[in-house]
């Protein structure tokens, strides 16, 4: 990771651009009061002051990275393969969360089609086993998918261990507490 790298310079330039946009565009356009406000003849601190201080921290950081720490030793070198792996993992988690969100409603829909019923997931989300369905399927996919990515292969044992881990989490969070709501049942 360490070695001759210009990552500090690139990072510094990116931060300088971001700080300039923040201070020059975002704060003026997206904050309604200025740095200092006069309300009923009283001078008060406006909403823009605090984000401006944050922007100045970023600006100073960018200046230091580009000037003082430009040649610093041991700068990290970005490895595109590693970044690719992490991007894949984030994508997997994204898909798992989508599956978690929609497994329950989908299962209810399938039951409705097969049994000619009129069930609604929203009304079943506090009833077992419906309330566990999304969390179990999405959670198992998330854990076993991450394991498979690290191992470079899909193993039945890993899937079973993942399913067991999710069941344990259900037992920890849901069974003893009436007021804890597992995802995604709080806002479906």
């Amino acid at each position: 990771m360490a070695g001759k790298s210009s990552s500090n310079l690139i990072l510094g330039l990116c931060i300088l651009i971001f700080a300039a946009v923040l201070l020059g565009v975002w704060i003026p356009a997206d904050v309604q009061t200025g740095l200092i406000e006069k309300v009923r003849r009283q001078v008060t601190v406006g909403d823009a002051l605090a984000p401006t201080v944050a922007g100045l921290f970023l600006l100073l950081s960018g200046v230091l990275l580009v000037t003082v720490e430009r040649q610093a030793e041991g700068q990290p070198r970005l490895d595109l393969r590693n970044l690719g792996f992490t991007a894949g993992m984030v994508a997997l988690i994204f898909v798992s969360l989508i599956v978690m969100r929609w497994s329950g409603p989908l299962a209810v829909g399938i039951v409705n089609v097969l049994g000619d019923g009129d069930l609604e997931y929203r009304l079943l989300r506090d009833t077992a086993p419906w309330k566990f369905l999304g969390y179990f399927v999405g959670g198992t996919l998330m854990i076993s998918g991450c394991v498979a990515m690290v191992e470079g292969r899909i193993r039945l044992r890993a899937v079973l261990v993942s399913a067991l881990a999710v069941l344990t989490m259900i037992a920890i969070y849901d069974l003893p507490f009436d007021d804890l709501i597992l995802p995604p049942n709080g806002d479906v």
Partner: peptide
């Protein structure tokens, strides 16, 4: 510089 960056982002 990186400490200030981290602090600035946290504040923002």
């Amino acid at each position: 510089a990186k400490g200030l960056l981290s602090t600035g982002l946290g504040l923002l």
